[in-house]
């Protein structure tokens, strides 16, 4: 199981700003280890952000996204106490899902 996703969600003037920091190696499959063997690719492929079960952003990632991916975006609406849930799946089938309440 991967480490928790760090999520910040703050509502202001009718807009909710969401900032997400995921914990993931995002290995490209291009690198080699000390013995010359290729380190297999291991990266998040799909990400979904929900606000009270409504999808507000869905994303697909390739290996060019930095390790421990960061993402910030805004959606209209959202009130203090509403749920924001972030979930991802990687190319090995690992998944992680976490949620916060909007501050």
């Amino acid at each position: 199981m991967a480490n928790p996703i760090r999520i910040r969600a703050a509502a202001r003037d009718g807009v909710t700003e969401v900032r997400v920091l995921m914990s993931h190696v995002m290995e490209t499959g291009q690198r080699k280890d000390a013995s010359g063997a290729v380190i297999p690719a291991h990266f998040i492929t799909e990400l979904t952000v929900r606000h009270n079960d409504r999808v507000v952003l869905s994303a697909e990632f390739g290996p060019s996204v930095s390790a421990n991916p960061y993402l910030a975006f805004k959606f209209n609406g959202g009130a203090k106490g509403d749920r924001v849930e972030v979930s991802w799946i990687d190319n090995k089938g690992d998944t992680r899902s976490d949620e916060v309440q909007i501050a």
């Binding site: 807009v15 995002m26 490209t28 999808v55 507000v56 952003l57 869905s58 994303a59 697909e60 990632f61 390739g62 290996p63 060019s64 996204v65 930095s66 991916p69 960061y70 993402l71 910030a72 975006f73 805004k74 959606f75 209209n76 609406g77």
Partner: peptide, 18 residues
């Protein structure tokens, strides 16, 4: 990366790439 922006989501985002 690619992002689907549903109605109600602002067309503005930040991330980090290699």
């Amino acid at each position: 990366a690619s992002f689907i922006i549903p109605e109600g989501t602002v067309a503005e985002l930040q991330t980090r790439v290699k």
